[in-house]
Amino acid sequence: MAHMPPEKDPSFWVLVLTALRENGLAMGLTFALTWLRIQFDGKETRPVRQLIEATLGALIVMVVA
């Protein structure tokens, strides 16, 4: 049987959706708190970089949980 890349394997997406369903609230709270911390600190002024940093924090919560 040929090896399928992860993005074409349906079980991969089932795992991703399950992780989002189980950890969605924690990820949302992490995103909000990280974004507020960045706003309070005031050192990062570019909105794209602020969103990237907050998104990475939320993704770390998904991976760890």
Rank of each mutant, 00 (worst) to 15 (best):
M1G: 10
A2K: 08
A2V: 08
A2P: 13
A2F: 08
A2N: 13
H3A: 11
H3E: 15
H3Y: 08
M4C: 04
P5C: 04
P6H: 01
P6S: 02
P6V: 02
E7P: 00
E7S: 04
K8Y: 06
K8M: 06
D9I: 00
D9Y: 04
P10C: 01
P10W: 01
P10Y: 00
S11A: 09
S11Q: 08
S11N: 07
W13H: 10
V14H: 09
L15R: 14
L15Y: 08
L15A: 15
L15G: 11
V16R: 06
L17Q: 14
L17E: 14
L17G: 02
L17Y: 10
T18G: 09
T18F: 10
T18C: 09
T18A: 15
A19L: 08
A19E: 10
A19Y: 03
R21S: 14
R21G: 11
R21D: 15
E22C: 09
E22F: 05
E22V: 10
G24A: 07
G24F: 03
L25T: 14
L25N: 09
L25P: 02
L25V: 15
L25M: 11
M27A: 14
M27T: 05
M27D: 03
G28P: 01
L29S: 13
L29M: 15
T30E: 06
T30W: 02
F31Q: 04
F31I: 06
F31D: 06
F31E: 04
F31V: 05
A32K: 12
A32Y: 13
A32T: 15
A32L: 15
A32E: 14
A32F: 13
A32C: 12
A32P: 01
L33D: 13
T34I: 12
T34H: 05
T34S: 13
L36C: 12
L36I: 12
R37K: 10
R37M: 15
I38E: 01
I38V: 04
I38C: 02
I38F: 06
Q39H: 08
F40Y: 11
F40N: 09
F40C: 10
D41Y: 04
G42K: 03
G42P: 01
K43S: 14
E44S: 06
E44L: 09
E44W: 02
T45H: 05
T45S: 12
R46V: 07
R46G: 07
R46K: 10
P47H: 04
P47W: 05
V48G: 01
V48S: 06
R49G: 03
Q50C: 06
I52E: 07
I52D: 07
E53M: 12
E53P: 00
A54P: 01
A54S: 05
A54H: 02
A54R: 00
T55F: 03
T55H: 02
T55I: 03
L56S: 12
L56N: 14
G57N: 11
G57T: 06
A58R: 00
A58L: 04
I60N: 14
I60P: 00
V61P: 01
M62K: 11
M62F: 04
M62R: 11
M62H: 05
V63A: 14
V63M: 11
V63P: 00
V63F: 09
V64A: 07
V64Y: 05
A65R: 11
A65P: 05
A65K: 14
